[in-house]
Design a protein around this nucleic acid. Sequence first.
DNA 1: CCAAAAGCGGAACCCTCGTCCATTTGTCGC
DNA 2: GCGACAAATGGACGAGGGTTCCGCTTTTGG
Lengths: 207, 207
Amino acid sequence: MDKDVDELEMPDERGRPARADARRNVDALLRAAMDVFAELGVDAPMRTIAARAGVGVGTLYRHFPQRSDLIKAIIRREVDGCVEAAATLVATREPGEALASWMQRLADFVATKRGLGPALHSGDPAYQALPDYVHGQLTPALRSLLDAAASAGSIRADVDAGELLFAGLRLAMPASEGDTGQARRMIALLVDGLRYGADAPDKAKPR
Amino acid sequence: MDKDVDELEMPDERGRPARADARRNVDALLRAAMDVFAELGVDAPMRTIAARAGVGVGTLYRHFPQRSDLIKAIIRREVDGCVEAAATLVATREPGEALASWMQRLADFVATKRGLGPALHSGDPAYQALPDYVHGQLTPALRSLLDAAASAGSIRADVDAGELLFAGLRLAMPASEGDTGQARRMIALLVDGLRYGADAPDKAKPR
DNA sequence: CCAAAAGCGGAACCCTCGTCCATTTGTCGC
DNA sequence: GCGACAAATGGACGAGGGTTCCGCTTTTGG
């Protein structure tokens, strides 16, 4: 709860080390935004977030010109965590198993952040930066898992990482508040689809 | 283009046959809403729709108190079409094939209506009536297909119709404007997941 | 301690929503 | 036809959120 939000150096593009009060405010804004988003969803009024952080709306817009900038800052660590998890899994687990585990982790990430899923897929241009970032980071991570599993013959080889990521993100959006079970089952079903036409190391049965 | 929007009798809950101008305005509003939604998405300003229909906003709100009422009226026929398609398919095609075809039809329906997908899954209480209606109509339709396929042994028997419908609707949301290919592939993958644990290709085998 | 630069805050403006009600219009009995 | 009544209309209005702008405050470096 009192853990620091890290990444607050903000050296600014042009050399300067950034002012102390500015760093403090950015920190307060990120904390406030996390709370408010969790409470009211990602469409919560900007005023509310600024007020919760104890700053004026001007300050909020100064640091986060777009609502998506704020969301992006908040989810960056989560996404980075997924990327690291992929590296760990691919190195330590059986390829098909690693893929399945990672997809479940992805589901947990999306399902946990209330309103994030809809925002990611709204198609609203204001949020375009979000899917761009998430896909840019996660597609290579998933591709490494997918390639490993395909090479091992655990799954079919005709599936694109970007598309599968998309599908996973879609399925992970919870049906209702806090329902992770359904999302997990549907993602497991999708992964079974990957296995369906596999060459197979131990159970071969192509079409 | 000049085809009638049907279902304009509107006998009103209590007997009366409804006034002529009211029917005309409802018709105009539905046409306008279809246009405007297609152009600007389902979040388009209500004023725009009213203006396009040549009526005041008061009239719009009178006939459609909630934005979702308007959307619901527009998609009702699509949904009904899907329900009928399920009945036809289950009667004329091999069960597994019927299921796969219907899921694709579902995808086409969702992908075609710009902004509908996000609205369905936004979680916004204002739109709650939409998923309620869609699920209420389509779940039984899908269940009939699912039961037929499971009885035939084409697919595993442990999947809930409501959950699969949810998954299909999620996956059908297009990645980008007019991209139905990706959605179709991912839904095909999901259906393959249903086949993965199947007992047999053509003999019944309830667990 | 001082001055310049960076940051702050919130009033102001614009846009949209959804309501409300005075006016208009359709319908039905005569 | 015609009048009276109810239904329907449409736009003005108040509430509230988004974003900008600019005078004031704080920090920082010398």
